[in-house]
């Protein structure tokens, strides 16, 4: 067989592939390797997935290279589980007294119930994407103030504190939330409120946290601050909160007058 140019080219290209592969082995690290140890570790004492039911779905997403999208779907699932409009509608129809354990005054929009799986579902999201900052804040605040399970909120935050890059400018918010929850546990309301105040000043804060703080102010009869916060919420234009914010504003305006 004659040696042709194409054969030479083939060798050159193959060698280039091999060389660049070796170099890339050193340069490229899969950004989720740390989180993967939790999910796909095949040997050793692997931490179990928080939600085994979706294991296949999650692994498929990772394998197909659509990890962020899978995390988004898990996040939508959290929102559906915890905040669907239908549930909150049915909640509104219930008489005030029967809500019992579920402290409506703190909350914004979420269905009736204890949401025992909320921690697991949130953990599922952040193990798919440990860089999903918002989930740590939203999830921990919901668990601590809306569901009155601060320990669960703390454990979610702890994962964030461990896995979220500490060099990011919004990293300290995780600590802020952690402190606020700890003060809540210690019943030191003044400290908790001051931490939440700094939390709601941050650009990436969940609107829900503002609502939580507004409700705390309302409960402690600081109506003016509560009213200011509800105005703030109303002005964000978030459709979910708009109606509820309007009600609150109306109520608080009559009280403050």
């Amino acid at each position: 067989m004659k040696i042709k140019i194409v054969h030479v080219l083939l060798c050159v290209f193959a060698l280039t592939v091999a060389t660049s592969s070796f170099i890339l082995d050193g340069l490229f690290t899969y950004p989720y390797s740390k989180a993967n140890a939790d999910i796909t570790a095949l040997s050793g004492p692997a931490r179990k997935l928080p939600v085994e039911k979706y294991l296949l779905f999650d692994i498929t997403g990772i394998v197909l290279g659509v990890r962020r999208l899978t995390a988004n779907m898990a996040w939508i699932h959290v929102l559906q589980y915890y905040g669907s409009a239908d549930l909150s509608d049915s909640e509104k129809k219930q008489p005030e007294e029967t809500r019992g354990h579920h402290n409506h005054k703190h909350g914004s929009l979420y269905g009736a119930g204890k949401y025992y799986d909320l921690l697991k579902f949130c953990q599922r999201v952040v193990r798919l994407d440990p860089f999903f900052h918002y989930v740590y804040l939203y999830g921990s605040a919901s668990m601590a103030w809306n569901l009155e399970r601060p320990d669960e909120g703390l454990s979610l935050l702890q994962e964030g504190i461990e896995n979220y890059p500490s060099t990011r400018p919004d990293y300290w918010q995780l600590h802020l939330f952690k402190l606020a929850i700890i003060y809540k546990k210690l019943d030191r309301y003044a400290d908790m409120v001051s931490h939440l105040e700094s939390a709601v000043q941050q650009p990436g804060r969940p609107v829900m946290v503002v609502a939580i703080l507004a409700n705390i102010y309302k409960k402690t009869q600081n109506y003016e601050r509560a009213l200011a916060l509800w105005h703030d919420i109303y002005n964000t234009g978030d459709a979910d909160y708009r109606e509820y914010a309007a009600q609150q504003i109306q109520f608080l305006e009559t009280v403050t007058e």
Binding site: A14, T16, V17, S20, S21, L24, L27
Partner: peptide
């Protein structure tokens, strides 16, 4: 480096 890799791989 990945661009070099891609071009060579296509080659």
């Amino acid at each position: 480096v990945a661009v070099v890799y891609a071009v060579a791989y296509i080659g």
